[in-house]
Amino acid sequence: MQKIKNHLKKTLSGVVADASHDAKSMQEVLVIKPEHIHQVATILKVELKFDVLIDVFAVDWFNKKDTRFEVNYLFYHTAENYRAQIKALIGDNAKPSIDSIADVYGSANWAERECYDMFGIRFNNHPNLKRLLLWKEFKGHPLRKDYPINQRQPIPVLDEIL
């Protein structure tokens, strides 16, 4: 584990803005700029052999003026039982966007769609960026802090599949 830890720090030293170790969840937390995410994901997959992307999720720091949204990626190395959390801080508060890593990790496809669904973060070059859980008439992104709690949406019509 120490070996991969050193390897991780060495390989990513150019793009990581801040690194820390979260003892509670036993994983490395690395903060990067959003434009580096595809490069980082490729390095993790190809060079460091992190074989699983567990989840992609966003956080809405509503009161932070400069970086309201951050996108988190949880990577897992099954052979070493080792985890890394990549945090990308997104500068654009009005139209948050980040590159998709669905071509590197297949599981990012749906995870990024859910993230787009709930937070409205656009993933550039995503193969199929549409809502995953909510229905297509839904307006807005409900997990954003400025989504009104009482706001109701039109009742969806039945899909053709039924």
């Binding site: 229905w135 009742i155 969806p156 039945l158 039924l162």
Partner: peptide, 10 residues
């Protein structure tokens, strides 16, 4: 939930 409402109606 809302996605289940049309199923219930059906």
């Amino acid at each position: 939930n809302y996605k289940q409402a049309p199923i219930l109606k059906k």
